[in-house]
């Protein structure tokens, strides 16, 4: 996880060289395995964020640059739900998810859709504009202060003998699978799911047979935003909240979406886990601040070599 609360600030090792040497000495299978497991657990939250992004890309064919800012907004919502109404984040998730669905629906239906006149490049710019607005409105309102909430179980762990696994992260893993399953069922079995698939494949054709494309676009955007609300509620117990907190995740989510194939749900899940592990391992070898470079380099590499991703149909 980028700059987690526990490892507040990564030591500025000289390009991680000193770190590298020390880790070679103590590198044992147990450490590798625990890094691997923790990477998988982190990857679950990444996967959730990426699920929303990939869904929006798969149908609207745009990259939603407001994804990170919306995640930050959801984290603030979860934070204030706890501070003001003493709602546990794991309870708040059931309120925030529908609320963010409505927010996402409204944003696409009444702002992004009309503002971009159906042009992809305009959609990129509008979502970028929204990201700037949301992020800086939060900065203006709450300043750059970093906030955290105290929960009795935030640091609860399960002892596996050779390593400890954090309980909130295990919950994240479960939630990622539940959300992915619900989304998959919805898209494959429900009527709106059929409409979404139709629009994703052939927008004009869907319109001709009577599908309300603007509505389907907005529903998809709403679903993507709802995924973010789930991820935010899972993050808040162990992560800090500030006006740029979401950004660290969203570039990672872009990587995952590209890695897994734009628009592919299983791709987002698997891509999330792979990325979590890559980050965890490169953090182990290179030091924490350079650990993120591992992700970006993977990202650039995948974009350049196989832009349609591991599971994507075509770029």
């Amino acid at each position: 996880m980028p700059r987690g609360r526990a490892g507040a600030r990564a030591p500025r090792s000289r390009l991680g060289l000193s770190r590298c040497r020390s880790s070679e000495i103590v590198l044992s299978p147990a450490i590798l395995l625990s890094a691997l497991l923790n990477g998988l657990l982190t990857g679950a939250v990444y996967a959730l964020i990426a699920l929303g992004l990939t869904l929006i890309y798969g149908v609207l064919h745009i990259i939603n640059f407001a994804h990170g800012a919306l995640l930050t907004a959801a984290m603030f919502a979860a934070y204030f739900a706890f501070k003001t109404f003493h709602l546990d984040p794991y309870v708040a998730v059931f309120l925030l998810t529908p609320a963010f669905f409505v927010l996402g629906y409204a944003l696409q239906r009444f702002v992004i859709g009309p503002a971009s006149h159906g042009d992809d490049r305009n959609m990129l710019l509008v979502t970028l504009g929204l990201a700037v607005i949301i992020e800086n409105a939060l900065l203006f309102e709450f300043r750059a202060d970093t906030r955290t909430i105290e929960l009795p179980y935030a640091f609860a762990t399960i002892n596996l003998g050779f390593t400890f696994l954090a309980v909130p992260r295990i919950l994240g893993l479960v939630a990622a699978f539940v959300v992915a399953a619900v989304l998959w069922l919805m898209i494959n079995l429900s009527d709106i799911g059929r409409a979404i698939r139709a629009v994703a494949k052939e927008k004009l054709g869907a319109q001709l047979v009577g599908v309300d494309v603007a509505h389907v676009y907005a529903v998809t955007f709403g679903l993507g935003t709802a995924c973010i609300a789930v991820a935010a509620c899972l993050l808040v117990p162990t992560y800090y909240v500030n006006p740029t907190a979401g950004n660290a995740f969203v570039l990672v989510a872009f990587t995952i979406v590209v890695l897994g194939g734009m628009g592919s749900i299983p791709g987002a899940l698997i891509g999330g886990f792979v990325t979590g592990v890559v980050e965890s391992l490169s953090g182990l070898f290179l030091g924490e601040s350079l650990g993120q470079i591992g992700i970006f380099l993977t990202f650039i590499f995948v974009l350049l070599v196989r832009p349609r991703g591991l599971f994507g149909a075509g770029a």
């Binding site: 702002v111 009309p114 503002a115 971009s116 006149h117 710019l125 970028l128 504009g129 800086n136 900065l139």
Partner: peptide, 22 residues
């Protein structure tokens, strides 16, 4: 001196320009 508001304005202008003054 509050930070952020100028960028909020930039963001709004960006969206509005794309919307109404392509």
């Amino acid at each position: 001196d509050a930070p952020g508001l100028d960028l909020v304005v930039f963001g709004c202008v960006l969206v509005l320009v794309v919307w109404f003054l392509p």
